[in-house]
């Protein structure tokens, strides 16, 4: 079963179709605080007043401190700025930092903060760099140990 090029292609097309179906289905989920899926900037940017007083989750870049102002970019839309209130860890927040925010949406682009996580720009670069290196390491191992059989579209391990 599934050893020839054509049967393998057929099964791969079926699995790829299943994956596409899952991703389309995933797109329909939406927000629901009852299962801890909170509205974000894509929701309240469209209809701000509807979300006032609700628990929201969002993320953006710190543009100024005292008060802490964050620029948030909704999908395919113009950036909006939010002013944060009652931030516990204000000392660790500096302009340019990436911040994720969990809090209550208040009128006039204000968020009453419950909790934040903060990441400095260099920490993101570090993360991307080591992730890239891990990819190279693993790809290198794969190319060294495995060979592709174009006839049957399959991979087989080498001797060591």
């Amino acid at each position: 079963m599934i050893e020839t090029r054509s049967t393998r292609l057929l099964v791969l097309i079926f699995l790829a179709g299943t994956l596409c179906f899952l991703l389309l289905w995933a797109g329909t989920l939406g927000t629901d605080p009852d299962r801890n899926a909170f509205p974000d900037e894509d929701d309240f940017a469209v209809d701000y007043d509807a979300y006032i007083g609700e628990q929201i989750k969002t993320s953006g870049t710190v543009v100024s401190t005292d008060p802490i102002v964050v620029e948030v970019i909704p999908d395919g839309s113009i950036p909006i700025t939010l002013t944060l209130q009652s931030v516990d860890n204000a000392d660790s927040i500096s302009p340019g930092a990436e911040i994720t925010i969990y809090g209550i949406l208040e009128p006039n682009n204000i968020v009453s903060v419950t909790d934040t996580t903060v990441r400095q720009p260099w920490e993101s670069y570090y993360m991307y760099l080591v992730s890239f290196l891990a990819g190279l390491w693993t790809l290198g191992r794969f190319l060294r140990h495995w060979t592709v059989d174009r006839q049957t579209l399959s991979f087989t391990p080498g001797d060591n």
């Binding site: 699995l15 299943t18 049957t152 399959s154 991979f155």
Partner: peptide, 11 residues
């Protein structure tokens, strides 16, 4: 599903 795709790609 992704794991299954990988699984199909070997004898």
């Amino acid at each position: 599903v992704s794991v299954l795709i990988g699984t199909v790609l070997v004898p």
